[in-house]
Simulated scan of single mutants.
Amino acid sequence: MEDQANSKSIIVNYGIILAGAGILLSVITYAMGAHLKPHWSISVISIAMTTALIVFGIKKYKELNKGFISWGQGVKIGVGICILSTLITAIYQYIFMTYIEPDFMQQAMELQNQVYLDSGMTEEQIEAANEIGQKFQSPGILAAISIIGAAILGFIISAIASAIMKKTEEETY
Rank of each mutant, 00 (worst) to 15 (best):
Q4N: 09
N6A: 12
I11N: 00
V12N: 09
I17H: 07
G20C: 12
S26H: 07
S26W: 02
S26F: 05
V27N: 02
I28H: 12
T29V: 13
Y30P: 03
A31P: 01
A31L: 13
M32G: 07
G33L: 07
H35Y: 08
K37I: 11
I42F: 09
V44P: 02
M49R: 00
M49G: 04
T50Y: 05
V55I: 10
V55N: 01
F56Q: 05
K59E: 08
K59P: 09
K60V: 02
K62Q: 07
G67N: 06
I69A: 03
G74R: 00
V75Q: 01
K76R: 14
I77N: 00
G80Y: 01
I81Y: 01
C82L: 14
S85V: 03
T86P: 00
T86A: 00
I88D: 05
T89V: 04
M97F: 06
I100W: 13
E101L: 07
D103S: 15
F104Y: 15
M109N: 11
M109L: 12
M109F: 13
Q114W: 11
Q114H: 07
Y116N: 06
L117F: 09
Q125R: 05
A128S: 15
N130F: 15
E131P: 10
E131M: 13
G133N: 05
K135H: 10
K135W: 15
F136L: 13
I141D: 07
I141C: 06
L142A: 08
L142S: 09
I145D: 11
I147K: 10
A150I: 08
I156P: 00
I157H: 00
S158Q: 04
S158P: 04
A159G: 05
I160T: 02
A161V: 03
A161Y: 00
S162I: 06
I164P: 14
K167G: 04
T168A: 11
T168G: 09
T172S: 10
T172I: 14
